[in-house]
Amino acid sequence: MSKTQISQELHGILAEFANPGELYHAAQAVNKDGFRKFDTFSPFPIHGMDKAMSIRKSKLGWIVLGHGLLGLTGALSMMYFMMVVDYPINISGKTFMNVPAWIPVTFELTVLLSAFGAVFGMFFLNGLPQLNHPLFSSENFKRATDDGFFLCIEATDPRFEADNVRKMLKKLGASNVEDIYEE
């Protein structure tokens, strides 16, 4: 935007590509070149991008498993405490520890806690909510949620060198290369 920003710290260099195919090949090339701190942005998940960028397997499954086990044991111990320990009531001579009758509630609470784990765990792993981000300063970047395909190499990457990165991105077919500054 204004020239005063040049004195500010560079966040990274953002490049726009025409379509998912170009972005995919660019990500592959950048990854092959040894860059690690880079990311691609697209309005929808692009098939195979994880391999092109060597993204590691998501840890979300373990988070969900932990939550699910918590729901399972939590539900059973809650019912055990309430129905057997704290206030046992004789209901038509049924046993106090009536486990088969507890299955539905156990199941529901396991699913509930697992779903919490899946949703909040996903946002946690993604570092969201994060309402502001240096990339939002680019007017062009608004199209990342519409029909724009972007690749950003961050300045913190050890191999980052502004001029070389710009040149490389242009060579890969980027149509719109711009500098992004920290706020």
Partner: peptide, 23 residues
């Protein structure tokens, strides 16, 4: 929530969507 369409985010997102569908 500040969603910016990052592929690294989509990766976890798709996983979460799959797990939620499974649940």
């Amino acid at each position: 929530l500040g969603w910016r369409g990052s592929s690294r985010h989509w990766w976890n997102y798709e996983k979460a969507y799959m797990i939620l569908a499974g649940l």
